[in-house]
């Protein structure tokens, strides 16, 4: 297989899964002839037709809600929300229907569906094309939430999500859609398990934990630390609900210093939960307080698009603080 970008990988993966299982259907705004505004469903309409690649009305509540009924009736829908910032009209569907169906029916009805959505900033999109709303979903019992940062993980996690019997919110870092190309394995069943983090670099001085778009800046910060002669340990969470406590706690227990990087607003973020868990489990093994480097508690700005993101400089400063503690 030739090297593909993340967004090309997503289109390829949807094709592979639709070919494998005829219960898999795609629905959303512009997913048909247009192939999605980011081309994440490119060529699927030509191959599978309007019954399996459904151009929906411009309504997130209809898209996510209809996916619930389709899934309950036996399909495996993959819904696309054009931008994560637009999910809110469908938020009630996610919280009240998608997340609750199995529980409230005592397991009689389930909603095995995937809701894909490009998220995160760095594309000069202003606050309605840049947000990172994953904490809302993680806070909602009954949803699985993943946020890959590489093409291979996007493929492996999307396959796992489509095959999962639970609903999965699949978040895509849009600023990495075309950032790198990666050679993908030929194996059509190369799954990445939901709930398992990836260790990107093994080190002893400080643990850096991140996910999604912020993995790019975290990786650059780690490279800079290596150039300074330090040894960072880098973890890509990949899954946010459930998240891989074992991998994180094992590394932090060993190293004693941790910096948590995410571009989502700081308050009540996913990384706040990771920090709290580290404090609850490992207080006596910590050499410094867990620090969060995050987006700010403001709406996402337009002009200060890059400055809002937790860039390498801010990450390095936080690393210095935990080293100096």
């Amino acid at each position: 297989m030739s090297a593909l970008t993340m967004v090309q990988t997503i289109a390829r993966t949807l094709d592979e899964e639709m070919a494998r299982d005829d219960r898999v259907v795609v629905l959303g705004e512009d997913v048909g002839k247009r192939g999605g505004v980011f081309l994440a469903t490119e060529k699927l309409f030509d191959k599978y037709g309007p019954d399996r690649v459904i151009d929906s009305p411009l309504s997130e509540a209809a898209i996510i809600g209809a996916a619930v009924g389709m899934a309950a009736h036996g399909l495996r829908p993959v819904a696309e929300i054009q931008f994560a910032d637009y999910v809110y009209p469908g938020f009630d569907q996610l919280v009240s229907q998608v997340a609750k169906l199995r529980y409230r029916s005592g397991g009689q009805f389930t909603a095995p569906l995937v809701v894909r959505m490009p998220a995160g900033g760095g594309v000069k999109g202003g606050h309605h094309h840049s947000q990172s709303p994953e904490a809302h979903f993680v806070h909602t019992a009954g949803l699985k939430v993943v946020f890959p940062s590489t093409p291979a993980d996007a493929r492996g996690l999307l396959k796992s999500a489509i095959r999962d019997d639970d609903p999965v919110v699949f978040m895509e870092p849009k600023r990495l859609y075309r950032a790198v190309k990666e050679e993908l394995p030929d194996d059509l069943d190369a799954l990445v398990p939901i709930g398992k983090a990836a260790v990107r670099r093994v080190g002893d001085d400080v643990v850096l934990v991140s996910y999604g778009g912020s993995m790019a800046e975290t990786t650059r910060a780690a490279d800079a630390l290596v150039e300074q002669g330090l040894s960072p340990h880098v973890i890509d969470l990949r899954s946010l609900a459930p998240w891989d406590e074992e991998t994180v706690l094992e590394a932090v227990a060993r190293v004693g210093r941790v910096v948590l990087v995410s571009e989502a607003p700081k308050s009540a973020s996913v990384m706040s939960e990771v920090a709290a868990t580290i404090a609850e489990e490992l207080l006596d093994q910590l050499l410094a307080p867990p620090l969060r480097v995050s987006g700010f508690d403001t709406p996402y700005p337009y002009a200060q698009d890059r400055e809002y993101l937790p860039g390498p400089a801010r990450i390095m400063r936080a690393v210095q603080r935990v080293l100096d503690y």
Binding site: G65, A66, V68, G69, M70, A71, H73, Q93, Q97
Partner: peptide, 11 residues
């Protein structure tokens, strides 16, 4: 909230 799921079931 059950109206869109009902529509999806029918689709």
């Amino acid at each position: 909230s059950h109206i869109p799921p009902a529509a999806g079931c029918a689709i």
